[in-house]
Design a protein around this nucleic acid. Structure first.
Length: 567
RNA sequence: UGGGGUAUGGCCAAGCGGUAAGGCAACGGACUCUGACUCCGUGAUUCGAAGGUUCGAAUCCUUCUACCCCAGCCA
């Protein structure tokens, strides 16, 4: 499937650029990386970056690194690292991934900063954060030079050493790059490249109390690790001049015997992945989790990678989704329907099709011998015969879907109604005779009679009827909770209100079918198994939030469309 | 109103001067032991708008419009 798509999906602009670089000899190999900050879990948007970066490396037979951008210990937590590694492993299925940490390069970064100072390209500033902001200017007005801008290199060097030694309190000094305070690109207005922070780092502990800023650290990490193509999202486009500046101005001095950068990386930007009507965006998800409006980072209503995995999405489906969505620079949001299509495609041949009744109503076959039970041999997946068969019990009392019976059917309704005949999937053809109702007029039991000569597979049983419905044997059926996530969190409804900080969930996003009746065998489903509930869509067994270890079924995707009654 | 970026059917997206690929969604029809799957078929006289260059423009030029990003000692 994935191979087929490769032929029809044209090469995107990043591949075109890399081809050009290779052809022109700018690089003779390709190395990419995925650089998350460990301050939260990964979501579908990151999946695009992971799959793009690892996919490019794979395509060009290059190296792919997972690198944690752990340059700000005040915001990062080690607990996220493990989860992120798991997500990346799962998504890429372990493709040649090596794990690195920006903090591994702290010494190189420090050395680079020293070079910059010596070269007169950086200086120590004593401006406060507020003063810094005032001096920076605005979008339309240029900034003013820092009073410390012409500080002699020797003095800056000495002060930088003080910063490093720990004698300088947080915020008292910063190291700024000396570029251009009047640049229309605010990123170039003498950006801070090192700040003081007396916080223990998860990996380097108390070794450092000064930490590099993203704009300084990122290019050096890439260069030191040998990344050739630094693929990132569009908002970093106007950081690129600074990225290139750092690589160029802070480069090791070959004449002084310093080892040169492992590579001179090239940054290329692409548009983020957004989904229609779904909250992506780490800060929103984080808010939902922290406010306990969802069960956790892997709540199935979320689109974190952990949640998608728990819900039953497969790496192959996500991979195909990213491929089909394409890579471009245009701000866009992909349709959930395409994600679901990709999952259906993957699951179609790899799951068993089973009968499950989500909203049960009893069906009694009046002329079926009392007390009799027979076992039917049923194929697990007609389109994938290699998946084998299973035994399903059948008797005179069954459960059928409430919507499969109507006392007064509209036109073109060809399921059960008085006088109509219908095939019970894998079993007999039955004719509806009557129904019983309670005081409120709700149907409680549907009666029918069956034709013993129409058993599936028997000679002469190929009589055509308009409708076929699914069922479950009342005697052996197991009752299990089934969760149907009708929609994920709806962005249109203002999940997160910036003004008052409130977060709202769409109350219709989850429907619980507490009394769903499933084939007996499904009672033993393990967490992680996926099934196609005939006509109800694809479901995924999850034991995580079940009290007795029995599976709770989560809907992964619904069928493409279903019969709707006229309003 | 400074800088950067993007605009192609409902949602993505190819196209790079030669007369609008493809996928998802939708809608017809065939098939069907579920109305699913599968299989056929249908859609932009038009590429944000207006001018211009050209035999010829979504592709080149000009102007305009809309949307996104940037003023953290976050990444």
């Amino acid at each position: 499937m994935a191979e087929e798509n490769k032929e029809t999906v044209s090469r995107h602009f990043i591949e075109v650029e890399i081809d050009k670089d290779l052809k022109e000899g700018v690089y003779d190999h390709v190395q990419t990386r995925f650089p998350p900050e460990p301050n939260g879990l990964l979501h579908i948007g990151h999946a695009k970056s992971i799959l793009l970066n690892s996919g490019i490396a794979k395509e060009y037979d290059g190296r792919f690194l997972l690198r944690f951008d752990d340059t700000n210990p005040s915001k990062e937590k080690e607990e996220f690292m493990e989860a992120i590694i798991k997500d990346v492993d799962w998504l890429t299925e372990g493709y040649k991934e090596e794990i690195r940490y920006a903090s591994d390069c702290f010494q190189e970064m420090y050395d680079a900063a020293v070079r910059l100072i010596k070269r007169g390209k950086a200086f120590i500033s004593t401006l406060s954060a507020e003063e810094m902001r005032e001096y920076r200017g605005t979008l339309t007005e240029p900034g003013k030079n820092d009073p410390d801008r012409e500080r002699p290199a020797e003095e800056s060097l000495r002060m930088f050493e003080e910063m490093k030694s720990g004698s300088v309190p947080d915020g008292a000094m910063t190291l700024r790059a000396k570029i251009d305070m009047s640049s229309p690109n605010i990123n170039m207005r003498d950006p801070v490249i090192y700040r003081v922070a007396h916080i223990a780092h998860p990996r380097t502990g108390e070794q450092w109390c000064i930490y590099p800023m993203y704009d300084f650290a990122h290019p050096i990490e890439d260069a030191v690790e040998g990344t050739t193509h630094s693929l990132c999202t569009m908002e970093f486009e106007d950081h690129r001049p600074l990225y290139d500046w750092v690589i160029r101005e802070a480069a090791p001095d070959a004449a002084a015997g310093e080892r040169p950068w492992a590579s001179v990386p090239r940054q290329i930007e692409f548009a983020k992945m957004y989904l229609t009507n779904v909250v992506t965006g780490k800060r929103y998800i984080k808010k939902l989790v922290e406010d306990k409006l969802v069960d956790g980072w892997d709540d199935p209503r979320l689109v974190t990678i952990a949640a998608l995995r728990r819900r039953g999405y497969t790496p192959a489906a996500l991979r195909n989704f990213i491929t089909l969505s394409g890579i471009s620079k245009a701000q866009s949001s992909s349709d959930m329907a395409m994600l679901e299509y990709c999952l259906r495609e993957d699951l179609k041949l790899t799951t068993d099709r089973v009968m499950a009744v989500l909203d049960p109503v009893k069906l009694v076959i009046d002329n079926y011998p009392a007390g009799q039970t027979e076992m039917l041999t049923v194929e697990n997946n007609k389109e994938a015969p290699e998946r084998g068969t299973r035994e399903v019990s059948f008797s005179g009392e069954l459960y059928i879907e409430r919507e499969d019976f109507m006392e007064e059917p509209p036109k073109k309704y060809f399921r059960l109604f008085p006088g109509n005949e219908v095939r019970l999937m894998n079993a007999y053809i039955v004719t509806c005779t009557s129904c019983e109702k309670d005081a409120e007029g709700n149907v409680t039991v549907v009666h029918c009679s069956y034709d013993p000569d129409t058993k599936s597979g028997m000679p002469g049983a190929d009589k055509k009827v308009k409708g076929t419905i699914h069922w479950v044997d009342a005697a052996t059926a197991v009752t299990a909770p089934v969760r149907v996530y009708e929609s994920l969190i709806d962005e249109e409804k203002g999940v997160y209100n910036e003004e008052d900080g409130s977060v709202n969930l769409n109350p219709d996003s989850v429907k619980l079918c507490e009394n769903a009746k499933l084939e007996a065998a499904l009672g033993q489903a393990k967490g992680g198994d996926s099934f196609q509930f005939v006509r109800s869509g694809y479901f995924h067994a999850d034991v995580k939030d079940s009290k007795e270890g029995a599976p709770v079924f989560h809907r992964i995707v619904s069928m493409k469309s279903s019969f709707r009654l006229p309003a």
